[in-house]
C-alpha cells in the first residue's frame, strides 16, 4: 500500500476514510482466506469436530472451557492445543472444528476488533462482534459443505459500557447465531457434557447459575472428564502428563484465565472426595 486509496464503492478519486471492516481490507489487498483451488476441489468429508468445548453461566458470570487434544482421524496429533482463545479483553472464543480454519477465524477476529477500534475510534459493539463470527462461518460455507473446514464455535462476550453482564452464544455450521440462556457446548464429546448439564440445571437442585467460581471450575473439569470417557477425540484431564483443560472466566470485572495450579488443586480435591 503506497497511496491514499480510493474508497470501495465511492466516487473515483475519493480517499478512503475507512469503514473499519478488516475483512474488506484483506480482500482489497488480495488476501483471501480460502484459495480458489480448494473451493473447486472435491474431497471426501472427514471428521471435523473432534473436541469438546463447553460454557455455562455461573453465579459471577460465564465460564468457558475446552480440552487440549488435537486429532487427525484416530491419531492424537497434539495434547496442548489452545481451543479457548481471548479475542480481546471482553470476548472469548472456544473453537470446535477444523483447526486451520478455526485458528484463522480467531486471528481474523482478533485483528478485526482491534482494527475497528483503532480506525473508528470506538470499540465494536457486542452485537457486531457476535455477527462478525457468524459472517466468517457463513463465508466458510464452501469448506463446510465439503466437510473439510467446518467450524462450530462458542462465543462468550460482554460490552463493558452498555452490557457488563457477559452473554453466551453458539452457532450452527452455516453461521446462524443463538444466545444461550444457561449453557452451550460443541464438539464430538459435547453430547455427554450436554446431557449432564441438562440434568444439573433441571434436577440437581443447584443449577450452574447458582454455583460459585470454585464449584463452576470443578464442574467444568468433571464435564470434560466425562466427555473424554466417551469420546476418544477429547483429552479431558491428562493425569499422567498433568495437562489440564483451559478454563476462562468472563465476569463483570473482566476476563480471567484459571491457572493450572488452581485447576490441579480443584481436580485433586474432586478425586480426594471420591476416596
Amino acid at each position: 500500500m503506497n497511496s491514499f486509496g480510493t474508497r470501495p464503492g465511492g466516487p473515483e478519486g475519493t480517499h478512503a476514510t475507512g469503514t473499519g471492516d478488516f475483512s474488506d481490507l484483506l480482500r482489497r489487498n488480495g488476501n483471501h482466506s480460502i484459495p480458489a483451488e480448494i473451493l473447486r476441489a472435491s474431497a471426501p468429508p472427514t471428521s471435523t469436530e473432534a473436541t469438546t468445548v463447553l460454557s455455562f453461566h455461573f453465579k459471577d458470570g460465564v465460564l468457558i472451557a475446552g480440552d487440549r487434544r488435537a486429532t487427525a482421524g484416530n491419531v492424537i496429533m497434539y495434547d496442548r492445543a489452545d481451543k479457548v482463545i481471548e479475542l480481546d479483553n471482553d470476548t472469548i472464543l472456544a473453537i470446535a472444528g477444523t483447526p486451520a480454519t478455526a485458528f484463522e477465524m480467531a486471528r481474523t477476529l482478533q485483528t478485526s476488533f482491534q482494527y475497528y477500534r483503532r480506525s473508528q475510534l470506538q470499540p465494536l459493539s457486542l452485537s457486531a462482534k457476535v455477527r462478525a463470527l457468524g459472517r466468517l462461518i457463513k463465508d466458510n460455507l464452501a469448506m463446510t459443505l465439503q466437510g473439510v473446514g467446518i467450524v462450530v464455535p462458542i462465543l462468550a462476550a460482554r460490552d463493558p459500557h452498555h452490557q457488563p453482564e457477559p452473554s453466551l452464544y453458539f452457532y450452527d455450521a452455516l453461521g446462524a447465531q443463538f444466545q444461550a440462556v444457561d449453557f452451550a457446548v460443541s464438539g464430538s464429546g459435547s453430547p455427554a457434557a450436554r446431557s449432564v448439564l441438562q440434568w444439573i440445571n433441571r434436577w440437581s437442585g443447584q443449577p450452574t447459575s447458582q454455583r460459585d467460581e470454585k464449584q463452576a471450575v470443578q464442574l467444568a473439569l468433571q464435564l470434560l472428564d466425562v466427555a473424554a470417557e466417551s469420546d476418544s477425540a477429547t483429552g479431558g484431564v491428562d493425569r499422567r502428563s498433568h495437562v489440564f483443560p483451559q478454563v476462562k472466566l468472563l465476569t463483570r470485572d473482566g476476563l480471567r484465565s484459571v491457572s493450572v495450579e488452581t485447576l490441579r488443586e480443584s481436580f485433586t480435591a474432586l478425586e480426594a472426595a471420591q476416596k
Binding site: 500500500m1 486509496g5 478512503a16 484483506l26 488476501n31 485483528t111
Partner: peptide, 18 residues
Amino acid sequence: IEKVRQTVIDAAHIDGFT
C-alpha cells in the same frame, strides 16, 4: 490527518496479520 492515520492503520494491520 484522517487519511494519513487510516493509511498507516491499514498498513500496520495488514502487515501484522499476514
